[in-house]
């Protein structure tokens, strides 16, 4: 019973703050609501007992990306500035697209019966995860791990080059 209560609390937090993120006119508040959504998502990962993933979510998403977004908001817009939204017609059509899409997806989810493999759950401690992440054998994830590190390096250099101030040409 407690599980369900916790799940519904997290679900309500996620839904409420997701809606607030996309409808509020103040950009900085929108970023803070996004932070709450990400924290509630970390709570859901904790419920599914993937504690390492929840920790990564808290540090990288809630700690890193939200701070990056808040910095860029402070650099690009005035603190009391209200964001301009789309017109009424566009908002209605976008809402329609979202509602129809969500309806179709939820209908499909309910018309499909998911069958689990029924295997016993693996331990999800950091040691097991780390071993599998760098293993090259069966079910190893060494290649994606290396690719993601190269991608991060490329993104880092790319971000520095793009955001660098250009020298005066005169």
């Amino acid at each position: 019973m407690n599980n369900q209560l916790m799940f519904f609390i997290f679900a309500a937090l996620i839904l409420f703050f997701s809606v607030m993120t996309v409808v509020t006119r103040r950009i900085l508040r929108s970023a803070v609501f996004l932070l709450f959504v990400l924290l509630a998502t970390a709570g859901i990962y904790f419920m599914l007992s993937y504690t390492f993933l929840a920790a990564v979510q808290l540090t990288v998403y809630a700690g890193g990306i939200v701070v990056l977004i808040i910095f860029s908001i402070l650099l690009t817009s005035h603190i009391s500035e209200r964001a301009s939204m789309a017109g009424v017609l566009q908002a209605i059509f976008s809402g329609l697209v979202a509602l129809v899409g969500a309806g179709v997806t939820i209908y499909t989810i309910y018309s499909y019966s998911f069958k689990g493999s029924g295997a016993p759950a693996a331990t999800t401690n950091v040691k097991a995860i780390g071993n599998q992440l760098v293993s090259t054998g069966k079910d190893g994830y060494a290649l994606p791990f290396e690719v993601i590190s190269v991608l991060l390096l490329a993104a880092m250099i790319g971000a520095i080059v793009v955001a660098r101030k250009e020298p005066k040409q005169d």
């Binding site: 996309v22 950009i27 860029s72 908001i73 964001a83 939204m85 789309a86 908002a91 976008s94 697209v97």
Partner: peptide
């Protein structure tokens, strides 16, 4: 679809 600000 409804936002116009790039960050949002």
């Amino acid at each position: 679809l409804t936002r116009k600000n790039l960050i949002t």
